[in-house]
Computed example of a mutant assay.
Amino acid sequence: MKKEAKHLYKKAIDSLTLSVEIFNRPNDCGRIPGVLIFMDHAFEMLLKASIIAKGGRIKETGAKETIGFSACIRKGFSDASLKFLNEEEVLTLQSLNGLRDAAQHYTLEMSEQHIYFQAQAGLTLFRDITRRVFNINLKTQLPVRVLPLSTSPPMDIQAFFASEITDIKKLLIPNSRKKLEANEKLRALAIMENSIQGNESQPSDKELNNLAEKLSKGSTWVQLFPSVSTLSFTQNGYGPSLDLRISKNEGVPITIVPEGTLGSNVLAIKRVNELDFYNLGRDAIAKKLNHTGPKITAAVQIFNIKNDPECFKQIKIGNSLFDRYSQKTIEKIREGLKEKTIDEIWMEYRTK
Results as ranks from 00 to 15, higher is better:
V222S: 12
K328W: 05
L85E: 04
L172D: 13
A188L: 00
E344T: 12
V35A: 03
F277T: 12
I52G: 01
W346E: 08
P26F: 14
R25K: 12
F77L: 11
M110Q: 04
N249G: 14
T124L: 12
E331W: 06
K64I: 04
Y278C: 05
N307W: 06
T341E: 08
T151N: 13
L85D: 05
D128V: 11
S163G: 10
S204V: 12
M39C: 00
K352V: 00
I136P: 03
D243H: 13
Q118K: 05
P153N: 08
V35Y: 02
I157R: 02
T61C: 10
I285S: 02
E207H: 08
D40M: 02
T66G: 07
E250C: 00
V20E: 03
A42G: 07
G251Q: 14
S150L: 03
A53Q: 13
G76C: 07
L96H: 10
I67T: 09
A268S: 12
Q94F: 13
M110H: 09
N27G: 03
I342D: 08
S247F: 03
G68K: 13
I246S: 02
A103V: 08
N194E: 07
G218W: 01
V257T: 14
K48V: 03
D128H: 14
L242A: 09
S19L: 00
F322L: 06
Q120K: 14
I296A: 10
Q235M: 11
W346A: 07
T166F: 03
T124Y: 14
S219I: 00
K64W: 12
T151K: 15
W221F: 07
S232G: 13
N210I: 15
Y116Q: 04
A121P: 00
N137G: 12
M45D: 11
K75E: 14
L171W: 11
G293H: 02
F134K: 07
A268F: 08
I317C: 04
N304M: 05
T292N: 11
V133L: 05
